[in-house]
Structure formats: structure tokens, C-alpha cells
Computed example of a mutant assay.
Amino acid sequence: MRQDVSPRTTAAPARPSAPVPRRQQIAAGIRDSFSAGLGIFPLGIALGLLVLQAGLPWWLTPALSVAAFAGSLELLLVGMMATVTPLAAVAVTVFVVNFRHIFYAFSFPLHLVKHPVAKAYAVYAMIDEAYAVNASLPESERSAPRLLAMQIACESYWVGGGLVGVALGAALPAPVKGLEFALCSLFTVLTLDAFRSRREIPSVLLAGASAAVALVVTPGLAMFTALLLFVGLLLVRHALTARRSTGETADA
């Protein structure tokens, strides 16, 4: 009996993808920041103008930009400092406005950053724009150099825009009205961009419902209430999705 001695064809092992050089990762992070920078830089200009229009010293603009680095909070602090708001009210406002960052930390890829100093900066620079830009990236394309480069670029836009705003405010003969709407416009653009990349219609509907209920129930603490309600709804949705997936697996 003749035996078949023809060699068998085996599939060649897949070659692991070559790691992306650090320089290319940094360049990618800077490119990622461009979309957010289009809103951050003008918003920084608005902050510089508001500081001068409120009668505060010009150096408060870069001081706030470095110490706080939170656009919505800094715009609120300018008005509170101009009216000499009590420290207790300032503390409550800071807590309520920045409370949302606690939820950002649940899905922000801080685990990619290993160095303690770099991780501390990543936490400090975890602003809304950085979170939105990172959320639109695929998991496979995220890295510590890319994340940190994007955050450093965003802060550069913010500080630079504030200094430009100070210079413009000193040169303009009259105050500029309507600058407060710049922050709302930026958040609207970031939300639309994140929705376009992920197509998460249920999340958008849950967020809208949370905001509507918060505005009716607790208008004075609408953001705080909306965040808590939105997180609760997301947890319920996750539980229902997990149960449905488990049921489909069991039926199969």
C-alpha cells in the first residue's frame, strides 16, 4: 500500500505588529488634540477677556489656567472672585462642578501611564475635552505617550488662549458680550463628535432624560443630579444587557 508522503501545507504564523515608535505616538496625540483645540483656544481667549472685564489682575488668567485647568470652573470662579463670594460657596461650587470627573476616571485609560509623575499629570489634565477625544479612539490605538501628548497640547491651547485674551482685552476699547456661551458651544460640539464616532443612541437618550429630570427636580444642582441619575441609568442598562447576553448564550 502506497503511503502519501506529500508535505502538508501549514499556515505561516502571524507576525506580531511592530510597535509604533514613541515619536509617532506623540505626533498622533498632538493631532488628536486639534479638534478639541479649536474650542479650547477660543475659550481661553474668552477667559482672558472676562478676567480683565471683571476688573481682576491679568496674571490671574495664567494662574487659574495652571492651578485649576478646568474651563467651566475657571469661568465660574472669575465671576465669584469679582463679587467676593464666600469661601464656603466657592468650595461647594467647585465640588459640584468638578464632581463629574469622578465618573470620567472609571473609563479614562490611566492604567496606560506607568510613571507616577506622568500619571499624576494625566489625572490633573483629565478635562472634558481630553476625555471626549480619548473616548473616540479605538482601544488598540491608545498609549501613554499619545495620551500625555494630547493632554499637554490641550493645556497649551488653554494657557496660550488665556494670554491672547488678556492681550486683546487690554487693546479693546469696550467689553465683549456673550463670551459665556463659548463653553456651552464647545461641549455641544464635543458631544456631537463623540456621538458620530460611537453611535450610542441609547446613551444620548439616557443623558437627555437625566438632564431634563434634574432641571425639573433640582434646578439649583442640575449638573450634580443629572450625573448621578445618568450613572444609575447606565448601570441599569449594563445589568440588563449582561442579563440578556447571558440568556442568549444559555439558549444557544
Rank of each mutant, 00 (worst) to 15 (best):
P42D: 13
A153P: 10
S185P: 00
A252G: 07
V51C: 05
G39D: 02
S6T: 11
G247C: 02
A28S: 13
Y124D: 09
S185K: 00
L73Q: 13
M80F: 01
V166D: 02
S6D: 08
F41L: 13
G220Y: 03
L186R: 03
M1C: 10
M223P: 04
A222I: 01
P21I: 06
I201T: 15
L205F: 09
V90A: 12
V5L: 14
R237M: 05
H115D: 13
F230C: 14
A125S: 11
C154F: 05
L227H: 12
S203W: 07
P13L: 09
H111Q: 09
A211D: 04
T191Q: 00
A12S: 14
Y131C: 14
L179Y: 01
L112E: 11
L76D: 02
A207P: 01
G37F: 02
V231L: 15
T85A: 13
P7D: 07
P219W: 03
L233W: 06
T61S: 09
G220W: 04
A212T: 02
L47S: 04
A149N: 08
W158E: 02
G44H: 02
M80Y: 01
H111K: 05
G232S: 06
A130E: 08
L190W: 00
V216D: 00
I102M: 07
R23Q: 12
L163N: 02
A226L: 10
P138Y: 05
S33D: 08
I40W: 04
A63P: 01
G162H: 03
R23L: 13
S65P: 00
F34H: 09
P21E: 08
Q151C: 14
Y104Q: 14
V117W: 11
H101D: 10
S156M: 14
I40V: 15
R142Q: 15
E129I: 00
P202G: 06
A130M: 07
S156H: 10
A67K: 06
E155I: 04
W58K: 08
L240A: 08
A28K: 09
L50K: 01
E180I: 03
S245T: 14
A174T: 11
F108A: 12
S136L: 11
E129C: 13
S72H: 01
A36W: 12
P138M: 06
L47M: 14
V92F: 08
A239C: 05
N98W: 09
A14P: 13
L52R: 03
V117K: 11
R243S: 14
L60T: 01
T10Y: 11
P7M: 07
L60E: 02
S17E: 15
L49T: 00
V97Q: 04
L87M: 15
L47K: 01
Y104P: 15
S6H: 07
H115M: 06
V96P: 12
Q25G: 05
F103E: 15
M1N: 11
L52E: 01
M223T: 05
A54S: 12
